[in-house]
């Protein structure tokens, strides 16, 4: 009896300090996330609410062809965005990691500063830039790089450009963190042993920063899959992604169960590979946290 009392005495501070966040996230995060899957089996009532009876029709509605096309588009756009981010951020991270230590922090700060502007404002800035009478198109026309009938806004190209723009810092940071720890003397050694510059880069450097690259893939791919505001504002009609369909079903064209079914689809598609990925590389968890924290922003 006495020992049990003692044990619960020790438990009490732990429970008290754990309870607020545990209960809060249980109610406002876990419960709603599970609710999405339940509501996917409901149908909409006439007033835009959720009916009481259960049905499979919402799920079969969501598997319609036009939704599958949007889903497929969402996946390939996210893959292209992730690839472009890697392509741009690896050379940048490589370069910054080789600079004298006292300057590195300043270069990184330069990468992070654009994130301090509101996400929507960054999208708006791109709208101004890509506008048919905007700076970029006028300049490119004048240079003769693009034909007269080419527009830069309201297409898939704009969606990809702007998503890469907003995600790039999140790709550079983890790759830089890995590159900074990389021993650059290994590259010289490889060169001395007769490897070409290119071979040394991809056979020694890339495997050396593997962890950073994997983290970058996760922090770019997941938000890209859930992207909503960017396609909505620069994508035009053909640039719609799954996030737009969810938002549309939740607001203007209200059908909450259908929004739930689409959200359930999106979360399954994201969760399954991510979970598999993370179980294999447990330390990635910590990397992602520190990247999102150090950037002081999240990609929304």
């Amino acid at each position: 009896m006495n020992t049990m009392n003692h044990k619960s005495d020790k438990k009490l501070p732990e429970l008290l300090s754990t309870a607020p966040s545990y209960l809060w996230l249980f109610v406002f995060f876990l419960l709603p996330s599970l609710l999405v899957f339940a509501i996917a089996f409901k149908s909409a009532d006439s007033s835009g609410g959720i009916s009481d009876s259960w049905t499979l029709s919402t799920i079969s509605n969501v598997l319609r062809q036009d939704y599958i096309i949007v889903l497929w588009r969402t996946i390939w756009v996210s893959v292209v965005v992730t690839a472009l981010c890697l392509l741009l951020s690896i050379p940048v991270a490589y370069w910054i990691a080789q600079q004298p230590k006292k300057y590195r922090y300043w270069y990184l700060l330069l990468i992070i500063i654009p994130l301090w502007t509101n996400f929507l404002i960054r999208i708006f800035a791109w709208r101004t830039l890509l506008h048919p009478e905007g700076f970029l198109r006028t300049a490119l026309l004048w240079l003769g790089v693009i034909p007269d009938d080419m527009f830069l806004l309201n297409n898939m190209g704009a969606v990809i450009t702007v998503t890469v723009y907003t995600c790039l810092p999140f790709a550079i940071l983890p790759i830089f963190a890995a590159a900074e720890k990389f021993n650059f003397a290994l590259l010289e050694a490889a060169r001395d042993l007769g490897a070409s510059r290119f071979k040394a880069f991809y056979a020694i450097f890339l495997p050396g920063i593997k962890r950073g690259i994997l983290t970058a893939i996760l922090v770019v791919f997941i938000p890209a899959m859930g992207s909503y505001a960017i396609p909505d504002l620069v994508g035009g009609v053909d640039g719609e992604l799954l996030g737009n369909k969810i938002a549309l079903r939740a607001s203007a064209n209200r059908n909450l169960p259908e929004a739930a079914a689409l959200a359930a689809m999106l979360s399954i598609i994201i969760t399954v590979p991510v979970l598999a990925f993370m179980l294999k590389h447990k330390r990635l968890l910590r990397n992602i946290i520190s990247i999102r924290r150090s950037a002081g922003d999240s990609t929304k």
């Binding site: 995060f29 996330s33 609710l35 938000p223 899959m225 859930g226 992207s227 979360s267 994201i270 999240s298």
Partner: peptide, 8 residues
């Protein structure tokens, strides 16, 4: 992703 958090 925020979209999922918002909708849920």
């Amino acid at each position: 992703p925020d979209v999922l958090m918002g909708i849920s």
